[in-house]
C-alpha cells in the first residue's frame, strides 16, 4: 500500500509491502534516481514487511521548508517511526540512505533491531575523499557508480528521458542540501557512532569510486563490533550491481541478530 506521513507540514510518501506479518524492514534508498532498487527490494520483500519511503526532499516526497541538513532528516524519520508505532525495525540503507540510517540510530535506536549499511556516506577516513559527483557529467555519474561498464550502459539510455531528468534533478538538489559540505559526512555522527547500540553490518563493493572502501575503517573505528562484508568486482551500488549477493548477506545478518 502507499502511505503518507506529514512531518511539520511536509508530506513524506512511502510504500509498505512484502511478507505479511514479517519483521519490519525500513529501506532507506540511495540518492540517485535509478529505477533499479526494485529487484533488490522485491527480494527483501519476500522475507520481510518492507517500508520504502522517499526521504524528505527526494522523489515523491515534499521538499520541506525546514530541511537544512541531516539533523532534520533524522528527526523527521524518528517522528515517522513513532507514527508507525513499530519496534524491532531492521534498517537497510544504501549510500545516502545508509548515512540517514546511522543518523537516526545515533540519536535513538530504541525502535531499531539492526542496521545494514551499504556503502554508506556519513563518516570519513582521514586522507580519503568522496568522488565529486557534483562535478561529474551525467554520464560519468552513471559510469562511476558501477565496476562493470556493461552494467552502467543499461542506464545511460534511460537517463535521457525528461521524466527521469526531473526526478534526477530533484534528488540531486536534495543531495546537495544534505551533503555538499562537509562533503557527504558529518563529523558529529562520526564522534558519536558508539551511541548506535544495535548490530551493524557494512556492505562495500571493492571497486567503489564514490565512497572508497577504505571509508569502512572509520566506521569500524567507531563501531568495533560491526561486521564488514566486501563484495569483489563491485562498485558503489552493490544492491544493484550484485543484488542477489547483497540481499543474501543482508538477510543472513538480519536473521543472525535473532531480533
Amino acid at each position: 500500500m502507499d502511505g503518507t506521513f506529514v512531518c511539520m507540514g511536509a508530506t513524506m510518501r512511502y510504500r509498505r509491502f512484502g511478507k505479511s506479518g514479517g519483521k519490519p524492514l525500513l529501506y532507506l534508498r540511495s540518492e540517485e534516481s535509478l529505477p533499479a532498487d526494485a529487484g533488490f527490494v522485491d527480494g527483501l520483500a519476500r522475507d520481510y514487511e518492507v517500508i520504502f519511503p522517499d526521504h524528505p526532499g527526494f522523489g515523491a516526497s515534499d521538499n520541506p521548508e525546514w530541511l537544512r541538513g541531516m539533523t532534520d532528516t533524522a528527526y523527521c524519520y524518528l517522528d515517522f517511526l513513532d507514527h508507525l508505532g513499530l519496534n524491532g525495525i531492521h534498517i537497510v540503507g544504501a549510500s545516502m540512505g545508509g548515512w540517514i540510517g546511522a543518523e537516526i540510530a545515533v540519536r535513538d535506536s530504541a525502535r531499531i533491531a539492526s542496521l545494514s549499511l551499504i556503502a554508506p556516506y556519513g563518516v570519513r577516513e582521514n586522507g580519503q575523499t568522496y568522488g565529486d559527483v557534483f562535478l561529474w557529467t551525467p554520464e560519468q555519474n552513471i559510469v562511476n557508480r558501477f565496476a562493470d561498464r556493461q552494467f552502467a550502459d543499461k542506464f545511460l539510455g534511460e537517463e535521457q528521458t525528461s521524466r527521469v531528468t526531473t526526478e534526477l534533478l530533484k534528488d540531486r538538489y536534495a543531495t546537495a542540501r544534505l551533503g555538499w559540505a562537509p562533503r557527504f559526512h558529518n563529523p558529529e555522527l562520526q564522534r558519536w557512532l558508539h551511541r548506535i547500540n544495535k548490530p551493524v553490518q557494512l556492505v562495500w563493493g571493492d571497486d567503489d569510486k564514490i565512497a572508497p572502501p577504505a571509508m569502512a575503517r572509520a566506521w569500524q573505528a567507531g563501531l568495533p563490533k560491526s561486521k564488514l562484508i566486501t563484495i569483489p568486482n563491485c562498485g558503489h551500488l552493490p544492491h544493484m550491481e550484485r543484488a542477489e549477493e547483497t540481499r543474501a548477506a543482508v538477510t543472513k545478518f538480519i536473521e543472525e541478530t535473532g531480533a
Binding site: D132, F134, L135, Y173, A176, R177, W180, A181, R183
Partner: peptide, 8 residues
C-alpha cells in the same frame, strides 16, 4: 565548487 559554500 571551489569555495565549498553550498549553492543551495
Amino acid at each position: 565548487h571551489s569555495s565549498t559554500i553550498n549553492p543551495i
